[in-house]
Design a protein around this nucleic acid. Structure first.
Lengths: 169, 169
DNA sequence: GCAAGATAGTTTTGTTTCAAACTATCTTGC
DNA sequence: GCAAGATAGTTTGAAACAAAACTATCTTGC
């Protein structure tokens, strides 16, 4: 029998708790047990952050998924798709369609590697650099908003997030 | 002209930096500009956390997506689908198939509301409580792993994540 | 009370993602 | 060298999700 038996836990639903008191949104519910879970709040925060970023880039007709890839190619010219997938934290199979998109728009270039015919290296074109600058401006504006929200806590937040990522394989 | 011009930024790719020094994984790349972005690390951490949780529940043939919904219904008996979607941070349209699944498995019950024929209230069945207990055990084990990773930083991390979620609408 | 708009839930469509299967190439053991 | 296994990239299948369109009901203004 597991340690956690929801039946045995007091309802905790009497008053909507766990409110940070910042947003003006009144909530007609209690997060209950969930309110104490790092995993759950990680998802909520990531979700909120991504949605805000997507809204900003969407207005400028830019794909948010392009940003990380373009940025990583910029900072690692000659990177290969597999390394790129690991750097961006996504499965390698999801990189293929992104690269196809970027190639079709002439934002990146492929170069074959004589030493390994299975792979190829990537670099940004002039247009790719320009597009990255555009996206980077949005990303920076977005991160400034986040900075303002977390304030002094920024270094600690970054430290903890990096720690979680690095520790979970 | 945007403030951020990638061309004007020093490569920063000389040495793979931004390593938390915990994982044994050697990385052959630099995160570059991305390494300083809260949004990016939020995504990496959430992704790593969810993947670990999914692996645990997957072994026991449990759907990770069910957990938040069952938990919220448990702590808010009589909650409606729309409120449930807001509480779990997902679009209302994504709740429908989850509830259909849970209903088919007799884990939850619907009850019509005389005051509003469009809506209905939700509550857990006995089997639902049992299944929740099972999932909660996995979630707790997962959060204990996260606790061990973040250590003393746990309250601050939770505070900052809640702050981000609450502030971004 | 009735038309106009708002709201709850569902359906549909499109995007994003992971994971497994597959092909082609590379590496290793012997 | 050559077979056996590893690895890089792609394709395919399935799951999860958001957003818009839709239906049914409710609320509001007058």
């Amino acid at each position: 029998m597991p340690t956690a038996t929801p039946e045995g836990v007091s309802k905790a639903a009497s008053q909507p708790s766990g409110e940070a008191g910042v947003s003006a949104k009144s909530k007609a519910f209690s997060l209950g047990l969930l309110d104490d879970r790092i995993g759950f709040h990680l998802r909520l925060a990531q979700n909120a952050s991504f949605k805000a970023f997507k809204k900003k880039t969407g207005e400028a007709d830019l794909k948010p998924g392009w940003f990380a890839v373009l940025s990583l190619i910029h900072d690692n010219p000659g990177i290969t798709p597999l390394v790129l997938s690991r750097a961006s934290g996504r499965d390698k199979s999801t990189i293929t369609p992104v690269l196809r998109d970027l190639l079709r728009n002439h934002l990146i270039e492929r170069r074959t590697v004589p030493a390994d015919k299975r792979s190829y290296t990537l670099s940004l074109t002039g247009a790719g650099n320009a597009r990255l600058a555009e996206l980077a401006a949005h990303a920076e504006a977005h991160d400034r908003v986040l900075d303002q929200i977390v304030g002094e806590g920024r270094p600690e937040l970054l430290r903890l997030l990096r720690l979680v990522t690095a520790s979970l394989d």
